[in-house]
Design a protein around this nucleic acid. Structure first.
Lengths: 160, 160
DNA sequence: AACAAAATGTTATAGTGTTACATATCACAG
DNA sequence: CTGTGATATGTAACACTATAACATTTTGTT
């Protein structure tokens, strides 16, 4: 498994580097998959990567509207595309969306979400996946999709 | 940890027994906590336990309306109460609610949800909790609430 | 019986997401 | 090139989920 885009989103870092890397890997991924990263979809992905805080669809919509007009389906379709090709995730417990830190790699989305700074960090913990598989296998259940969203306080916010 | 109310919700069972046990344990829990299980709240809890399929708030509302009138806040307040005292859970990935199988016991809600029969099963896997704690501790994150919702196919639906 | 607290009723509205259909853009075969 | 089908976007209306604000009723306690 290669390096995640943001290894420690809760700690200070050069965020422009996250953005640059995310966009570069998105370009590469779409080229490989022959998926069309149109200007609109690219713009939405850039908006998602403005910070590590998951963003609501209507918040994205507001930002899209500076310059052009846009209606809900516009942003939802872009988000659908980004999720389909594996560039973004939806966080069900927040009704919000975030850029994927492991683009192009099969992984179960597992998220830490800080209630103080609202940033989220995407995990890809083999241990968590394994224990889930074990617990479900015991019940004869075949897993197709995992929603693992852990709310709490990040290391940085715990200090304050 | 005592017996869950429904051990194997995906397999055929005497469901009336689930209902009876759920209501009995709810009565007992509310008595202990000096919480008021009013007729309305009781009715909503009974509706939740009609099956193992999580139910949307507006679906509950429809059923409440047979006989009396009711508006959204009515059902949402009842659901808030049931969640507060630990008799029900909200499934974020479904926008739906379900009766709690471990009433009165502190536990992280972990759910298996079958996309075919739509039933859900509440786990309380120490292994999953532990692996989550381990993965988060490594990141210095303090967990306050877990959302673990696993979608897939239950043993019964896999056979068909 | 009187009061305060808790629960419920009522109306309106906020927030999130989809349907349906029209228009525009793109990729590719001819 | 250029027509054609597939893909993407625009637009308007609407469905679903949840909450706010305030009035009224019920309950538990003095």
């Amino acid at each position: 498994m290669s390096q995640p885009i943001a290894d420690h989103p809760f700690t200070p870092h050069d965020h422009q580097q996250c953005i640059d890397q995310a966009m570069a890997r998105a370009e590469a991924l779409c080229r490989r998959q022959r998926a069309r990263l149109t200007p609109l979809r690219r713009r939405v992905l850039e908006l998602l990567w403005q910070s590590h805080r998951p963003v609501g669809a209507y918040e994205l919509l507001e930002q899209l509207r500076t310059g052009s007009r846009a209606a809900p389906p516009t942003v939802y379709r872009a988000l659908d595309f980004l999720q389909r090709v594996g560039l973004a995730h939806r966080l069900a417990s927040l009704n919000a969306y975030t850029g994927c830190c492991y683009p192009g790699e099969s992984h179960a989305g597992q998220f830490l979400i800080c209630r103080s700074c609202q940033a989220s960090s995407e995990l890809s913990s083999a241990g968590v996946s394994r224990s889930i598989r074990q617990a479900t296998a015991a019940a004869g259940f075949s897993v197709e999709q995992q929603t693992v969203e852990i709310h709490g306080l990040c290391s940085r916010c715990r200090e304050d």
